[in-house]
């Protein structure tokens, strides 16, 4: 039942100086289906994999609009993500009521991180089980942040979270240096390529992914499915698929991970780090 005697409440340290509940929350992010974000000087693209938890259900939305200039992609507990997104919407709307201008992205991210941090220091609370990629545009240009359950936040040129995000990260690490000067359409293209990496051979279609854009002169919006499909066909992402994986339809790891399918879409977890028995 318990992994050790120090993980029953959030605020108790282990002798090794760790807070297990916070670490478990960080693991919850890895169980959600992948979300990626990348930016140029003027645009931010957020993308995610849609995964239905069963054949009979639809998938859950993972990309949200906080305001015209801020969008969020989440991985982890969708419910927590929606709570945080509602908070962000509130902050944005209150700021524009008071100042008639848009809330700087960096400030919203700090407020969000502070909110998450409080949950790591109160005995009657639990950390949020969700990681947020926050993309936004303000006076100082386009930004991409990652907020995690521990209350930490980081700014990135490009980043990926969620299950099998390492593959996307590898792709992004290889290419990010050119992103600053990229056009909007090139960013979307790279987003699709990075997203494909997380699928590990599964087919990338417009129904299995969501793409969103915001930038100078372009309010945050989620691309229409037809638009995405057209882009996928245009870039011939489907055609570039490695044929070796075609036969391995039942993914080996998904069978093993079935028992620990916790996250938002029940994506397979890395068994070595699966933290919680739910």
């Amino acid at each position: 039942m318990f992994r050790n005697q120090y993980d029953t409440d959030v605020t108790t340290w282990s002798p090794a100086g760790r807070l297990f509940q916070v670490e478990y929350a960080m693991e919850a992010v890895k169980q959600g289906s992948a979300a990626i974000g990348l930016r140029s000087k003027t645009h931010v693209v957020l993308a995610c994999v849609n995964k239905a938890s069963s054949e009979l259900s639809s998938y859950q939305k993972k990309i949200f609009k906080a305001d015209d200039h801020i969008g969020v992609a989440i991985a982890g507990l969708t419910a927590d993500g929606r709570v945080l997104c509602r908070y962000m919407r509130n902050e944005c709307i209150n700021y524009s009521y008071t100042y008639e201008s848009q809330l700087p992205v960096g400030r919203l991210v700090v407020q969000l991180a502070d909110k998450a941090q409080v949950c790591t220091q109160r005995s009657w609370k639990r950390p949020y089980g969700v990681g947020l990629l926050v993309g936004g545009l303000d006076e100082s240009g386009a930004h991409l942040f990652y907020n995690c359950p521990s209350g930490n936040y980081f700014e990135y040129q490009a980043f990926a979270i969620g299950s099998r995000s390492q593959a996307a990260k590898t792709y992004l690490e290889r290419k990010f240096e050119s992103f600053m000067e990229s056009s909007r359409d090139d960013l979307i293209k790279d987003a699709l390529f990075a997203l494909r990496e997380t699928l590990q051979g599964e087919k990338l279609t417009s129904s299995t992914c969501t793409i969103s854009v915001l930038g100078v002169g372009e309010a945050f919006h989620i691309l229409e499915q037809e638009t995405v499909q057209a882009l996928i066909s245009e870039f011939e992402i489907v055609g570039e698929e490695p044929p070796a994986d075609d036969t391995a339809v039942p993914d080996a790891s998904s069978g093993a991970g079935a028992g620990a399918g916790a996250g938002d879409q029940g994506a397979p977890a890395d068994q070595d780090v699966a933290p919680m028995d739910i």
Binding site: Y99, E100, S101, P104, G106, R107, V110, D138, E139, S140
Partner: peptide, 11 residues
């Protein structure tokens, strides 16, 4: 905030 953003006259 010390983040380079500042309130302008409009704000």
């Amino acid at each position: 905030w010390d983040d380079g953003n500042s309130l302008g006259p409009k704000e």
